[in-house]
């Protein structure tokens, strides 16, 4: 989408594209990952997702009524926030957790800034980080799924120095391991991502540079010896794929130009790898994206297109 996004003078061609159309397509593209989550973790995953979506939409509605603004629940953005938040939760959390998280996402992460288009951070990640800081016990407890090899997430096991019990790259790719609802099945995530790329709703710049940077960095520094890191493991585990395609590409909180997006992606990849290798938490995708969201206005300022006729 961004490549077509050249700001220019008239005449403009009208396209049937609209905010709600794009948003609902993103919702559709997230469905495969949701189905995979339900297959892997059971119906709990479905309830968590539905509850989060319902809470997000209701909060959006409440704010619309309270502030007497246009009711925006049908544009699908609140639905996406709810889904993405749920996808970042462990499947067996108590059901009040997604509710509180979704309310916080929409209220504090989005509406206090003025609603869709004004938020400086990805709302779903704001909600997730809030839950992570508030109830770490629930957010870091992963109960084993029916055919998972191990209950702890692969990254947590790595962080605690435990041997990874025969987890193959294929298991990681298909999602046969502990983790959050929407992040485990890379295959399903890629199906959705391809849809968005074909439609042109997201560009390759952020996801590609993000994943590539993380891979390079974990390859160099991921092991005790330089250039011996297990980069494929790092790419396939944790929330990297979900984050790179669906959260780091948030229209509002990411840079506008291709150059800016590449800086954004590299920054995300660097931060993710740094947190994973040296940080206190096993996973750093949410924090990396939020930090780069905060840097977005600065990136935009230094990468904006030159106005014709000026220096």
């Amino acid at each position: 989408m961004i490549n077509n996004f050249t700001v220019s003078g008239s005449p403009h061609i009208h396209k049937p594209e609209s905010v709600s159309r794009i948003m609902w397509t993103v919702v559709i593209s997230l469905i495969p990952a949701g189905i995979a989550g339900v297959i892997i973790f059971g119906l709990d995953a479905l309830w968590v997702t539905l509850v989060a979506v319902a809470a997000a939409v209701l909060t959006e509605l409440t704010f619309g009524i309270l502030t007497k603004k246009k009711i925006t629940i049908l544009d699908g953005s609140a639905v996406i926030t709810g889904i993405l938040l749920a996808f970042n939760l462990p499947p067996q959390v108590p059901l009040w957790l997604p509710i509180v998280g979704a309310v916080f996402s929409i209220a504090i992460g989005k509406q206090v800034f003025g609603g869709l288009g004004q938020n400086i951070f990805n709302p779903a990640l704001v909600g997730r980080v809030f839950l992570m800081a508030s109830w770490p016990k629930y957010m870091t407890t992963f109960t084993p799924s029916f055919d998972a090899v191990t209950s702890a997430t692969p990254l947590a096991a790595l962080k605690e120095g435990k041997a990874l019990e025969h987890i193959s790259y294929l298991d990681l790719f298909l999602g046969k391991h502990g983790g959050c609802i929407g992040e485990v099945c890379i295959l399903a995530l890629l199906i959705g991502a391809v849809l968005l790329l074909i439609k042109g709703y997201i560009s390759w710049h952020i996801p590609a540079t993000y994943i590539f940077t993380t891979a390079i960095f974990t390859y160099i520094f991921g092991a005790a010896q330089l250039f011996h890191g297990d980069w494929l493991f790092h790419v396939l585990s944790g929330g990297l794929i979900l984050g790179a395609f669906f959260m780091a590409t948030d229209y509002v909180a990411t840079p506008l130009t291709a150059k800016g997006q590449i800086i954004f992606g590299v920054g995300c990849g660097l931060l993710t790898a740094v947190i994973r290798i040296w940080g206190g938490y096993p996973e750093g995708v949410s924090y990396a994206i939020l930090m780069m969201n905060a840097a977005t206005p600065l990136i935009d300022r230094y990468t904006k297109n030159r106005i014709y006729g000026t220096k």
Binding site: I108, S134, W135
Partner: peptide
């Protein structure tokens, strides 16, 4: 009641003061 730990941390203080100011 499940305590919301974030409010015991500095980030929670910023949040509470910001919302109260608003």
């Amino acid at each position: 009641f499940e305590p919301v730990f974030v409010f015991g941390m500095p980030s929670g203080a910023l949040l509470v003061i910001g919302l109260l100011l608003g």
